[in-house]
Design a binder for these strands. Structure first.
Lengths: 208, 208
DNA sequence: TGTACATCAGTGAACGCGCGTTCACTGATGTAC
DNA sequence: TGTACATCAGTGAACGCGCGTTCACTGATGTAC
């Protein structure tokens, strides 16, 4: 039953975060002014400070929201891939393909990685934010490392590589691919890099 | 013969660029104030505007300087690698190893890629800067693509990959590796990613 | 059911500071004749 | 060699605007009894 559009609680805050995220990815955190956010959201400045104690709280909220969303995306994606395959290697390869397609289907290309954006504005943030950043990258390393261990059990690697490095490489290729796509204004570069990483993983464990 | 330290022309400007570059890589362009640059260089604000018409001219100068330096670095590096090897594959592999060692030897890790920093502050810059950015990435693609073509002539690829993508992957892995290194505060992550890319190239052309 | 109070989601006005930029000026060095 | 002028590498003071932040206040909704 369709709820009759009640004044949704937390809606304004969510909209502020939404505007802020895309602005931060395009101009950086410092250049994202509170004025432009409230203009977009249609409230006054004091309204902003009702939702966020100060600008650094916005930074934190933005980052945790991003990390949570990204983790959920990986859960769903590789979860679905595993439902279709009970072989860990094939599940991973299918998941990577789905990831590439997901990004390829975005009309304007990947909107950008907040971790990367924050990383190049490091000094603007406090230790808490920097730690959140590091933690999330380590979590992805662990996530993919676990997966690679499972694969290596059944498929002894044909190429001797460090599996932590191979796990990291997905993050690296993704972040690097996003940068290339944005700079070249070619949305397809990033998904093609993901597929190239996929070729590498296949080569490591199957020799082709 | 040691020259008696004449008042070096262009010295102040160069120092301004030096301070600016490291500040931009740490905080971003917008958060890098002219005040902090002149404080570091020991001149007044008007002195800055003698060297640069406005802040966007600083942005341009910073970027062209960075691109030129990076290109020269690649010339020297792969030039030396080729002197030691007349096989194009081995020359490339040696060059990649030298690149990894170069970065591994930096005491504080890689200082960051200006292309990436600018990319995440896109909206702050004019079309000229964005075009410079894109051009330099295309130049690296071409540089490495040419190299890969030479290799492919002698070593028919064992793994079917697009050579433009494989060329791009070096940039992607480098930029992504820099981000991981910075976020994790582990300088070795980036060189290890370069070496992993090296393993992939070797696998593509030799099957191991 | 009515009343009292609390909470939610803001408004409106004011603040001071830092920022990029402009302008008229200057003292030392270089160049033409 | 001396003089006139030009260029180089800045100085010093002032500008206005935008920024993040604060503070007292408000009108609508929710909750206790």
């Amino acid at each position: 039953m369709p709820s009759p559009a009640p004044k949704r609680k937390g809606d304004t805050r969510e909209r502020l975060l939404e505007f802020a995220e895309s602005s931060v990815l395009e101009k950086g955190f410092d250049a994202t002014s509170i004025d432009e956010l409230i203009a977009a959201a249609g409230i006054t400045k004091s309204g902003f400070f009702y939702h966020f104690r100060d600008k650094t709280e916005l930074a934190r909220a933005l980052l945790t929201r991003y990390i949570d969303r990204e983790n959920e995306m990986f859960d769903v994606l590789f979860g679905r891939a595993d439902e279709l395959n009970d072989d860990p290697l094939h599940g991973f390869l299918v998941g990577l393909k789905m990831l590439a397609e997901l990004v390829a289907d975005l009309p304007n290309g990947h909107p950008g990685c907040l971790i990367a954006a924050y990383c190049y504005q490091d000094r603007l943030f406090d230790q808490q934010v920097r730690d959140l950043n590091a933690q999330s990258v380590l979590l992805w390393r662990k996530r993919f490392r676990t997966r690679l261990d499972m694969i290596a059990e059944r498929y002894p690697p044909r190429i001797a590589v460090d599996l932590d490095d191979l796990a990291d490489m997905l993050s690296a290729v993704a972040d690097g691919g996003i940068i290339l796509s944005r700079v070249l204004r070619d949305p397809m570069v990033m998904p093609r890099q993901i597929l190239l990483y996929r070729d590498f993983v296949k080569a490591v464990f199957t020799g082709a």
